[in-house]
Design a protein around this nucleic acid. Structure first.
Length: 592
RNA sequence: GACCCCGUAGCUCAACUGGAUAGAGCAUCAGCCUUCUAAGCUGAGGGUUGCAGGUUCGAGUCCUGCCGGGGUCGCCA
């Protein structure tokens, strides 16, 4: 039940009736007609822009058209009043019964309340994390993981058939580099070289990865294979072997870290598997057949020519035909594929698996890469495929305002594990969703654990816990009462006539459209703001009870009123739980 | 030099994809309070939405140009 969707249909019906009466021309486009909560609650319960949007196509002034519509809308079910305001808004007031019905619906549907059908069961692919298997995941990955996972849950709640996907970059030069670094640590593990040798190699940039996290990997390799790799000097032999070892190890760690964060993917796609299966060649052949590749020489970037720049002919993709700035290279000068070539094959693979609606969650440092992948997808799907890229900005980790730079484990950056160990997965998840992903985020260990109004995790969880507390008291006060959702739904809700109580129900009524809006915009953070609003309203009711005994939820001498208010308390709890479920956060029963 | 993101109250951020008088919290100021779970409550002040144009019934939101901050820029992924 979505009150605003129902009103929208009533508005559409009013327009249709006027058309049938010959007062309006037929064939009007109602797509831009909206039924929304007004910004000011004093303006009514629902507002529609119909008169303003349709004024021009029907050739009437907004006010004249509004007069016609108001006439019809006043007769619509549950409409108490319809008035014209401002430049042509039509404000509707609905009967209280509508809001009581909303509450009954919440109690009847539980946390499934808010589930929407706008997705229509359409398949959508959300790819996120996709961290290189070269080291432990850091805070940036944590943000991407949480944003992607919450977005996937949000889309599922909105009725999409979601596939959560992770792309393993296990084929490029970086995994070879980490294999080289592993060999150094391995030689150290079997006593051939010292720590100083490893550090020296790092300083001379002979290896790029040297973190202590490689030591246990090297020891495990030594335990399995003894000293055999010390004797093998043919790169073509030992690199693939060590690479395979480190990738398997790191992916195991990645999956463990993600599990600790409550994140799980449906499918992991290996870049190397795509390469080995010939899919890069096939994808590029596809583009070449379509006449979209050529060999050419790129201009150096203006204003910043690399020192070692020299013009070279390269195989290029005609990205400019699809909105990119320049054509993009597919082959390196040594003849091997670029990362982009592999990514084209990967996105073609997604398309071949039946996806046309794609979302990728990336770090903001990949922003310059968005257009070319979108261009490639258009080329691969004749324009049918849609790729939305959500870029996550930096996370600054702080403790009481002081930057936290060093990880306990990795030494150079704060790892995902550090975060989880410090504050717990639910706090990490919630806080990561309190900003839109393209805005930088401060993550302050002290602040996110603070028990205060300022801390949205605490504030929302506390509202839920307070609600549960009321129920524990209620069970003692009314031992014989049926406090189940079903029992509460049959309480006499007409007793809920306090304006603040009705205001809470209006907020509950806005939950389904919050889900729809957030899902369509791919913006899970909106749920966090909704939950904070709902929690604030609930705490407001609570505080009024502190001041005025008659406004407390539980009235020992008034069974019926207590049950009605318990229904409302429960309704708030259900919607908070429904929202936290989108975030993958557990609602708490009590706070101690 | 080019491209992408950001710029809203002293601070941290909203604003439901173009709607009405731009909203919260913190901080400040003025009162109140000791609890159905304590981690408080009520009210007040605070704005040329970086600047300048444009589009239209209507712009924080869309377009153009500046200013400021961040990111990226063939053979990394």
């Amino acid at each position: 039940m979505n009150v605003f969707a129902i009103v929208k249909r009533q508005v559409d019906a009013a327009v249709a009736a006027l058309i049938a009466e010959g007062k309006l021309p037929s064939g009007l486009d109602l797509a831009r007609v909206a039924a929304e909560p007004p910004r000011e609650s004093a303006h009514g319960d629902v507002t529609t822009n119909a008169a303003m949007v349709l004024a021009k196509p029907v050739g009437k002034s907004p006010r004249d058209l509004a007069l016609l519509l108001v006439d019809k809308l006043k007769a619509a079910p549950d409409v108490v009043d319809a008035t014209i305001a401002g430049p042509g808004f039509i404000n509707l007031r609905l009967t209280d019964r509508v809001w009581l019905d909303v509450l009954r619906t919440v109690l009847g549907t539980g946390t499934a309340y808010g589930n929407a059908t706008i997705g229509g069961g359409e398949r959508i692919n959300v790819e996120y994390v996709s961290a290189n298997p070269t080291g432990p995941m850091h805070v940036g990955h944590a943000r991407g993981a949480v944003v992607g996972d919450a977005l996937a849950r949000l889309l599922a709640k909105a009725g999409f058939a979601v596939t959560k996907e992770y792309y393993i970059n296990d084929a490029g030069g970086q995994v070879d580099n980490v294999a080289r670094a592993l060999r150094m640590r391995y030689l150290q593990a079997i006593g051939r070289i010292t720590e100083a040798d490893v550090q020296g190699a790092l300083e001379r940039k002979e290896i790029q990865y040297g973190g202590a996290y490689l030591i246990p990997v090297a020891e495990a390799l030594a335990a399995r294979d003894g000293s055999k790799w010390a004797e093998v000097n043919d790169d073509a032999v030992w690199i693939p072997a060590l690479r395979e070892f480190i990738v398997a190890w790191m992916m195991k760690l990645v999956k463990e870290d993600l599990a600790a964060l409550g994140v799980s993917h449906n499918i992991f796609v290996s870049e190397k598997a795509l390469v080995d299966a010939g899919k890069v060649d096939a994808a590029l052949a596809f583009l070449t057949e379509a006449g979209l590749t050529y060999t050419g020489i790129l201009e150096p970037p203006k204003g910043k020519t690399p020192d070692d720049w020299e013009p070279r002919p390269q195989l290029l993709f005609k990205a400019t035909q699809f909105g990119d700035e320049v054509d993009r290279p597919l082959k390196k000068s040594d003849g091997s594929w670029t990362y982009f070539a592999g990514d084209i094959a990967y996105h073609k693979d997604k398309v071949d698996r039946g996806f046309t609606d794609l979302v990728n969650v990336w770090g903001a440092d990949h922003g310059g890469y968005v257009k070319r992948v979108q261009a490639a997808l258009k080329a691969l799907t004749a324009g049918k495929g849609q790729l939305d890229v959500q870029l996550c900005q930096m996370v600054r980790v702080l403790n009481n305002g002081e930057p936290v730079k060093m990880s306990k484990r990795a030494g150079t950056f704060v790892t995902m594990r550090d975060l989880i160990d410090e504050v717990g997965k639910d706090v990490v998840r919630f806080i990561m969703l309190t900003r839109k992903n393209d805005a930088p985020l401060d993550f302050d260990y002290a602040k996110v654990m603070e028990k205060s109004r300022d801390n949205p995790v605490f504030y929302v969880q506390y509202a839920h816990a307070r609600g549960r507390s009321v129920f524990r008291h209620a069970a003692e006060m009314f031992p014989a009462a049926d406090l189940s959702d079903k029992g509460l739904a049959s309480a006499d809700l007409n007793l809920l006539n306090d304006p603040d109580e009705l205001a809470v129900m209006r907020t509950l009524a806005a939950w389904p459209r919050t889900i729809e809006g957030a899902a369509l915009a791919h913006e899970p953070h909106r749920v966090a703001f909704y939950l904070s609003d709902l929690a604030a309203q609930f705490h407001g009711l609570w505080n009024k009870g502190n001041d005025t005994v008659a406004l407390r939820f539980l009235q020992a001498e008034n069974h019926a009123l207590s049950l009605a208010r318990l229904a409302l308390v429960r309704g708030v709890g259900v919607v908070i739980a429904s929202g936290l479920a989108v975030f993958g956060v557990e609602p708490v029963e009590e706070m101690r």
